[in-house]
Design a protein around this nucleic acid. Sequence first.
DNA 1: AGCCTTTATGCAACTAGTTGCACAAACGCG
DNA 2: CGCGTTTGTGCAACTAGTTGCATAAAGGCT
Lengths: 178, 178
Amino acid sequence: MSLPHAILTALLEKPSSGLELTRRFDKSIGYFWSATHQQIYRELGKLEAEGQIRALTPEQPARGQKKSYEVLPAGRAELARWTASAQDPKPLRDTMLLRLRAAAVVGTDGIEADLRRHLDLHRRQLAEYEEIEEHDFPPDRDSPQDRLRHLVLRAGIDLETFWTQWLTHAIEEFAELP
Amino acid sequence: MSLPHAILTALLEKPSSGLELTRRFDKSIGYFWSATHQQIYRELGKLEAEGQIRALTPEQPARGQKKSYEVLPAGRAELARWTASAQDPKPLRDTMLLRLRAAAVVGTDGIEADLRRHLDLHRRQLAEYEEIEEHDFPPDRDSPQDRLRHLVLRAGIDLETFWTQWLTHAIEEFAELP
DNA sequence: AGCCTTTATGCAACTAGTTGCACAAACGCG
DNA sequence: CGCGTTTGTGCAACTAGTTGCATAAAGGCT
């Protein structure tokens, strides 16, 4: 049940319409919680029905009209409650690791190319994060907000670094294999 | 669509009943692809209907009887096909990162305790993986199978190492914050 | 024998996320 | 002006995963 809270966070950072939210989920928030526009519209509907958010431009004739939302006090309270509540980390789920395990029994044919492709993808993502870090977090800015956001970005950078290193190692391992 | 392939892999490593699979998913395979017993039973039924696996003990009177499955040639072929096929990495989804981002707007009250709890959990997981490494992968064993499985375990170890380091850093950050 | 716990299989209902498509207004352009 | 593209909202159907419960045999115990 994290999507509504992701949306509340995004709306508190800046009131937005469904499509604007969708775009922001394609960057920023989406780096650690992705969502499609359908998920977002559905959830906006629910949140509005529950009184956690409200439309800024009321009584629009439905379709094709941009509709912005802002967070109501009830929504902010719910987000604060959720943020502070204890939650267990979700166990890892990774198909590439599963495929390597499968490769150990059915053979490694074809998988090496995809390891290389993944390495490339992770390198690009890493470069993107590092660019954001350089651009948005110069050494002088360090309000509590900045520090928290930087911390989150750091996790992204370190994770991508881990994957590039591990994939590099995996490819080397394949080179000396059969 | 990875669960059927996870099951095929597990069954190729060793033919098993539903409950045995469930137990093995609680360790080993489950470290990177977890599943509940209901998911597993449902999927076993499907795989049998599709002719990818078959029950070793046929015509048992249904309930309460242990039923072991083995992989048929069609299942092995499907697993090989899937393993070699290109697949995009799934974007990250992590509630703790989302909560930190939320904390930047609604306040950090209560979240620090959960950071510490997560640190503890990840340390335990790391210790468990390291024990497995020591026990199952002594330096001399290095058949291709062993190397691939070790590679997968290494990913688990390095990931947990990353999380313990990042969480430690996050907690330090909190200490100097407000 | 009777009863309790463990082992084992499974159904049904629910929640979350994905995919494919529909539809309307606004915008750009010849 | 009319016509195609982009922007924006949304429904419906599907797939994947979770939760709660039912049921039945086997084994241990007195």
